[in-house]
Design a protein around this nucleic acid. Structure first.
Lengths: 174, 174
DNA sequence: CTACAAGTGTAGCAGTCGCTACAATTCGAG
DNA sequence: CTCGAATTGTAGCGACTGCTACACTTGTAG
């Protein structure tokens, strides 16, 4: 049993229970081992978290590609709405909870969190750029705009206020 | 010494040290009292946090009005950029860190956090609507759009990627 | 078979957590 | 002054934290 083999189970647990309050003993129990073993494999809790964040970031891109349809939107507005519709489905909810944990950690100065979030954000931005409407006049900057909107909308979703973002986007030119 | 008198000092501490990892003993020591007293005044830690969030939400609106200039932007784009420029100054940094703590808590299912964040977000949206360009064709929906953009940009700021939001906004029509 | 490294269980350390029991003090109302 | 309420200090409980010491069992290479 190598550390790498443990990562999927660890990721499952963390997706379900959050990252900020995780502690070794319950985590170990949930995946059928002991805190002693997690420390043996990873050296320390922070190293475990770092490996876990790396794993999540590495696996996020492919999760995106499998979950998102290849449909190309006709307009920027349609593109945003498509992505939002998908990202709001149940399978993505655990990841969103984790996402805000990571952002909060990064905001508090945790560099490992920030770096991991950066990787994920970059991948998402790249994905966005590749999925812009074919006739978009400026896909590169457009992707940045849509990405910013999406993140703002996801934040409002946390407050059950996603409809505000929807309304603002629906009424906009973009 | 009533609980209300303690709130400003508590807010100062929390703005500096974050909300997610706060514990009673260091908090009490920092404001010159004891954990025993905090519990005496507030009943429990969660009640203290609730009172603190309420206090922060109540005081946020006036902080907005004193910190933001009354200048009216000529366009939506200019409006966003003005707000971003101010919200990115040093005095606002502690609040931003706290903000993402609250969002992460809300995302993890903490209803007190979510309600407090909702109040703050509502106030910010109202403020936005009142400060839209005078000739804006649809200030109500426009404010929602700009608010969404601002929150997305602030999230990217956490990752030192605010420039992405800036570029996207700069190139957009809005 | 031997020897050595990898892996694992048990027990525990030193620390922190929210919270409470108990007692002491302070203070204003009668 | 007297009595009861409000306030505060001390000490500690039971639970949890990351982590480690020590012993033990494996598995494998020579």
């Amino acid at each position: 049993m190598t550390p790498e083999n443990l990562l999927p189970a660890l990721a499952d647990y963390v997706l379900q229970h959050g990252l900020s309050d995780v502690s070794l003993r319950p985590l170990a129990k949930a995946i059928g081992t002991s805190d002693r073993m997690l420390l043996y494999h990873f050296g320390s809790k922070s190293a475990l978290i770092a490996a876990l964040l790396d794993y999540l970031a590495r696996n996020y891109a492919e999760a995106l590609d499998t979950a998102f349809p290849q449909a190309v939107a006709a307009s920027r507005k349609e593109c945003v709405m498509q992505v939002l519709a998908i990202v709001r489905t149940d399978p993505f909810r655990p990841f969103m909870r984790l996402w805000w944990d990571i952002i909060a950690g990064a905001a508090s100065g945790n560099d490992a969190y920030r770096e991991s979030a950066k990787v994920i954000a970059e991948q998402l931005l790249d994905w966005f750029e590749a999925h812009m409407p074919q006739d978009d006049p400026d896909p590169k900057q457009g992707a940045k705009l849509l990405f910013t909107l999406i993140e703002g909308a996801l934040m409002l979703d946390v407050l059950d206020q996603g409809h505000l973002a929807d309304a603002g986007i629906a009424a906009a030119e973009l």
